[in-house]
């Protein structure tokens, strides 16, 4: 039995502790906002927050995050979340939308560290999340816009 705290709720789960957090979130907790795209830490679609840090859930064994505080896109709230979502709406960022939860969770971490990131800082942080649709220019604009509100 493993205890997981996700978006503020406690879950007691029977699960192989080596299972990647991603699949536990998606299949056992029904939190499908966190996406699978590569499974090998190459694309960032599966990014969640673990104790406030951005973590790639596809390569994080669930056993390692027992007892931590996990936040997924579904439970991502607060000032930064609000600013990001408003900016994402203003720039109408998503296309297919598949990478967007990972983009937003990664952008959140960036804004927590640097409240007014330069283009360079945005590139550095956001290059961790691939977008096949090419929403990159819109994401850049949206992050600047969100930063203005913070």
């Amino acid at each position: 039995m493993l205890t997981l705290r996700v978006n503020g709720a406690i879950h007691k789960l029977v699960v192989d502790p080596d299972t990647p957090l991603l699949w536990v979130l998606r299949e056992q907790l029904g939190l499908t906002g966190t996406k699978y795209s590569c499974g090998i830490a190459e694309c960032g679609a599966c990014t969640v927050h673990v104790d406030g840090e951005a973590v790639l859930s596809c390569v994080t064994p669930v056993g390692e995050v027992a007892g931590t505080d996990i936040t997924t896109i579904e439970g991502f709230y607060g000032q930064v979340a609000e600013a990001l979502r408003r900016a994402w709406i203003a720039e109408d960022v998503p296309q297919c939308g598949y990478c967007q939860p990972g983009q937003i969770m990664t952008a959140a971490k960036l804004l927590q560290e640097k409240s007014h990131p330069t283009d360079r800082a945005i590139d550095d942080a956001m290059s961790a999340v691939l977008c096949r649709c090419g929403t990159y220019p819109a994401i850049r604009r949206a992050i600047h816009r969100a930063a203005e509100k913070l």
Partner: peptide, 9 residues
């Protein structure tokens, strides 16, 4: 579809 795509829904 934007709102659904930024909330994970």
């Amino acid at each position: 579809d934007t709102i659904a795509k930024i909330t994970g829904e």
